[in-house]
Design a binder for these strands. Structure first.
Length: 428
RNA sequence: GGAGGGUUAGGCUAAUGGUAAGUCACUGGUCUUGAAAACCAGCGGGCGAAAGCCCUUGGGGGUUCGAGUCCCUCACCCUCCGCCA
């Protein structure tokens, strides 16, 4: 959520940011209109409240002194009714202002490239050499099925399209990746591991920006105002919702493994085959709470923390900087890490690392108290995938596939695989 | 699912229906060679140049001239019973 005061006082900056996003500017016009009306009504209400407070006090004092207060009571009653009518009107407009503000996206950082579509994203760097094959590399779903480690048909039988059953060494590989990632982030990158609830209440979803705008993308629990998390970002960022931290506690680094649940509304026909786009997938997430001054340095570090996983696994990737039109609703700046997938012959997103500045902190009300004793300020929140586990498994299958159909396990992962060096079949 | 208790500012706590008090922590100041102690001040939010005004007792609604306080309702937390990995 934007700062209401900033938005009111700097309309040109907000509009410029919306234009850079190629976003509908009318959402902001709506806000300005509502805000102006709200302030007019508010000052009228406040005037009347002041008068009523004065009269009410006189009633109290007068009663104690045994005076006749019936005339005061008559005036007060009249005023009280007027205020009630005005207040009803006021809360309508307050609601309108709030609703308008909640659907306005974040203002992007000045370094975010211009552009409208993913084609306009800027490549920042590449890592690793693309594998060369003496045969036509196969898609991960073919490899997985033929090795007997991925079962898409039975996944569908159990739960429907976009659900997958992992079996044998496939299930082990997924679990190994989770542990491998968590170990590196906790031991080397100094994140604290947390294991949060996989369901959250509405306040959490509003706090991180999924609601109110993206409710259609979420799985809601029937008969309860709870949702399945679409990413660990939601419960982990909300750990400190409505709290005031001490400056000395910052920065705070958290990492969490969770499954993620997404409806994938509007993705029909895209990535229907394989593990790329599922209703349920595993992810290890990185979340940071920082002071405003350091958040962009922390974004660079967070991105490289995620990259480290791919480097250890010898997977080639590139880092791209999302353009203003492609960046997420709540984000001020986002790097995507894309891993090379030989089966598709292209790079695919495996991590998205963002600085939200104070956009989420304001919605979730997460502050810190400065050492010098000033007023509490909003923290900056950041997060990134470190990494999407299913897609990492995809990358391993496709990059390390052999002509005989087997898959070599990267050295770094073998301790987590009980020493397995190569998957020849799903059986252990 | 059932019964009971609870929610006041950063923490803790008080308030016969009549200006939300106090305390701890924190910040600044006085004093001091420096610190501690002591003392003074500040310490929820909004508008305003300021004076000041308005709002704020978990959310929403009601009664009332006036609600932290009375009524209704919802949420969350705690204890116990039931069920349960």
């Amino acid at each position: 959520m934007l700062d209401i005061k900033f938005a009111r006082e700097n309309p040109e900056k907000v509009i410029k940011a919306l234009e850079k996003r190629h976003y509908d500017i009318s959402v902001f016009d709506e806000f300005l209109k509502n805000e102006k009306e709200r302030k007019t009504i508010l000052s009228a209400v406040e005037n009347h409240r002041q008068k009523l407070n004065e009269i009410s006090n006189k009633v109290g004092v007068g009663r104690k002194q045994g005076q006749d207060v019936s005339e005061l009571l008559f005036k007060a009653k009249e005023l009280s009714d007027t205020i009630k009518n005005q207040e009803a009107f006021l809360s309508e407009w307050e609601e309108k202002v709030k609703n308008a503000l909640l659907i306005i996206p974040n203002i992007q950082h000045s370094t975010v490239p211009e552009g409208k579509t993913p084609d306009d994203n800027r490549e920042v760097r590449r890592y690793g050499n693309l594998p060369q094959f003496a045969f036509t590399p196969r898609d991960h779903s073919e490899i997985g099925v033929s090795l007997g480690i991925l079962d898409f048909e039975r996944g569908s039988k159990i739960a429907g399209a976009r659900f997958t059953l992992y079996k044998g060494l496939g299930a082990l590989l997924e679990r190994a990746l989770i542990n491998f990632m968590l170990d590196i982030h906790t031991r080397e990158n100094k994140y604290t591991e947390v294991l949060p609830p996989f369901m959250v209440n509405r306040a959490c979803m509003t706090g991180t920006g999924q609601l109110p705008k993206f409710e259609d993308d979420l799985f809601k629990i029937e008969g309860w105002d709870h949702f399945l998390i679409p990413t660990a970002e939601v419960p982990v960022t909300n750990i400190f919702r409505d709290e005031i931290l001490k400056e000395g506690e910052l920065p705070i680094y958290y990492t969490a493994y969770t499954p993620c649940f997404r409806k994938e509304a509007g993705s029909y026909g895209k990535d229907v085959k394989g593990l790329i786009r599922q209703h349920q997938f595993n992810k290890v997430e990185l979340v940071k709470f920082t002071k405003p001054e350091t958040s962009y340095d922390e974004l660079e570090k967070l991105t490289s923390d995620a990259e480290k996983i791919l480097q250890r696994l010898d997977l080639p990737y590139r880092v791209i900087e999302l353009c203003a039109g492609d960046i997420g609703f709540s984000s001020a700046k986002t790097y995507d890490i894309e891993v090379w997938l030989p089966g598709q012959g292209k790079y695919r997103e495996i991590s998205s690392c963002s600085n939200f500045e104070d956009f989420q902190a304001r919605r979730a009300n997460i502050k810190y108290k400065p050492k010098d004793g000033g007023k509490p300020r909003f923290v900056h929140t950041l997060n990134g995938s470190g990494l999407a586990v299913g897609r990492t498994l995809v990358a391993i299958l496709e990059n390390f596939q052999q002509e005989d159909g087997s898959v070599i396990i990267p050295d770094a992962l073998r301790p987590y695989m009980g020493g397995v060096e190569r998957i020849v079949s799903g059986k252990r």
